[in-house]
Simulated assay, not measured.
Amino acid sequence: MVKYPFTMNDTYRFTIALIYDFDGTLAPGNMQEYDFIPAVGKSNKEFWTEANSLAEEQDADMVLTYMARMIQSAKSKGLSLRREAFQESGRKVALFRGVKEWFARINRYGAERGIRILHYINSSGLKEIIEGTEIAREFRKIYACSFLYDVDGIAYWPAVAVNYTNKTQFIFKINKGVESVSDSKLVNRYIPENERPVPFSRMIYVGDGTTDIPCMRLVKNYGGHSIAVYNPEQKGAHKEMASLIQDNRVNHVCPADYSEGSKIDTLVKLIIDKLDLDEKLQKRETIF
């Protein structure tokens, strides 16, 4: 029997994983735009244009070039590159309506039915900034970009770079209960589907755009549920997201409003109810 980093609690019948992108999904815009980019004296357009232009010039990954620009820009302004400085930036990040209360409410809804809800981040943003947000404690694991730090605690090189395609690796890690980013053994080991801590069918992926499409499509195709969210204050955003349903890439589209009674609140609870009934029916089938 494979031993996993976490085990099922006997008080729960099974586990559901709610997996979120961060930028544009739980928070409007990009996390660097709240504090870091203004601190280095650039406009949002200037910073992203520089990072993306560097990627085009060098034929490089855009995630790696934005991380390089963060280090270069901070150094040029004499700003701290310590983990604590990035976490401090995270304290400035604003969240969509209802996000702060969302986790406790959904956890309670699952627990009342004997279901454990685990929340994960799967983001191309910076892990250190997410760690500084007021909701960081809600997540079982934050899979995101991060830096290597030298003996003085100064960021000097990317440790993890998460782009739109390699995001999918973390779906498989969650499926098999592998929480270490560096682990490449257990995640590639054959494990029967019924022994995996979180089957794909019990995953709900929430994302906001093109970088999430591979993950949303993967979860949907394996029997889980994918939800595309959009900023309700952004004109035309709903129409753009609706095309993802037409293209068979997601199951649902909702505004990024996580307050009680909102569309996504009702939808996620319905999915939990469905998975609850599916498990009960499956048990009856095995009995008879």
Rank of each mutant, 00 (worst) to 15 (best):
F103Y: 15
K173P: 04
L118K: 14
R113S: 07
V162N: 10
E33F: 00
A55G: 15
L244W: 13
V198G: 02
S182C: 00
C215F: 03
K45L: 11
V206H: 01
G98Y: 09
R189S: 14
F22G: 00
H225P: 00
I115F: 05
A94D: 14
A237F: 09
I37P: 02
L244V: 03
G236P: 12
L64E: 14
K283E: 15
N251Y: 11
M241K: 15
Y66H: 02
M62H: 06
L270E: 15
S243P: 00
H252C: 03
W157M: 10
P197C: 03
D278M: 13
K75I: 05
D208F: 05
L118F: 08
V206W: 01
S146G: 15
L270A: 11
F170N: 15
G125S: 12
N52E: 11
A17T: 09
F36K: 00
T65A: 06
L277P: 00
F22L: 03
V206Q: 01
S201E: 15
H252V: 02
A104L: 13
R196T: 10
N188K: 12
S43P: 10
R13P: 00
Q32L: 15
S184F: 12
N52S: 11
R105G: 07
L118S: 11
I171A: 08
Y12Q: 09
I191M: 07
D61S: 11
S180E: 10
S53I: 00
I204D: 06
K269C: 08
G98A: 08
N52C: 04
V178H: 05
E240P: 01
F170S: 13
G110S: 07
E101T: 09
V2D: 12
Y230R: 07
N166W: 09
I121C: 13
S243G: 04
P158T: 04
A159P: 01
I213C: 02
Y258P: 00
K235H: 14
T266A: 03
D150Q: 06
T165V: 07
I19P: 06
K100F: 03
G98N: 08
S76A: 15
S124V: 03
E260F: 05
E131Q: 15
G153E: 06
G132S: 04
E33L: 01
P255E: 06
N163M: 04
E88F: 04
V178W: 04
K185R: 13
D276E: 14
V253Y: 08
E101R: 05
S243D: 13
Q58F: 12
L26T: 10
K100Q: 10
L277D: 08
A155R: 06
E240S: 11
A242I: 13
I16D: 14
